[in-house]
Simulated scan of single mutants.
Amino acid sequence: MTKNLTLISFDLCPYVQRAAIVLAEKNVPFERVDVDLENKPEWFLNISPRGKVPLLKVGDDVLFESAAIVEYLDETNPPALHPANPVTRARHRAWMEFGSAVLGDIWTLEVTADQATFNASRVALKEKLSRVESELGDGPYFAGKDFSIVDAVFAPAFRYFEVIDRLADLEVFDGLPKVQKWREALAARPSVKNAVVADYNDRLLRFLQKKNSILGRLPLAA
Rank of each mutant, 00 (worst) to 15 (best):
M1Y: 11
K3Y: 07
K3W: 05
L5T: 05
D11L: 12
C13K: 04
Y15I: 04
V16D: 04
A20W: 10
V22T: 14
E25N: 03
N27D: 15
N27G: 15
V35P: 08
N39L: 03
K40N: 08
W43G: 02
S48G: 06
R50H: 10
R50S: 09
G59K: 03
G59Y: 06
D61N: 10
V62H: 06
F64C: 06
A67W: 13
A67F: 13
I69W: 10
E71D: 14
Y72S: 01
L73Y: 07
D74L: 08
P78H: 13
N85F: 13
P86T: 09
V87D: 11
V87H: 06
T88H: 10
T88W: 07
T88I: 15
R89V: 05
R91T: 09
H92T: 02
H92A: 05
H92G: 00
R93E: 03
G99P: 03
V102E: 04
W107F: 15
L109W: 07
Q115E: 13
F118R: 06
A120C: 06
R122T: 12
R122K: 14
K126D: 12
E127Q: 15
K128A: 12
K128G: 09
R131C: 06
E133N: 12
D138Q: 12
A143K: 01
G144W: 07
G144L: 09
D146Y: 03
F147G: 02
A152E: 02
V153P: 04
F154C: 03
A157V: 09
R159S: 09
F161K: 04
E162I: 14
V163R: 00
R166L: 10
D169M: 08
E171W: 02
E171G: 08
V172G: 00
G175N: 00
L176H: 00
V179A: 00
E184L: 09
E184Y: 03
R189T: 06
P190S: 05
V192H: 08
K193M: 06
A195N: 01
A198D: 14
D199C: 08
D202Q: 14
R206I: 12
R206Y: 02
F207D: 08
Q209I: 01
Q209E: 14
K210W: 01
K211I: 03
L215Q: 01
L215V: 07
L218H: 06
L218P: 09
L220I: 11
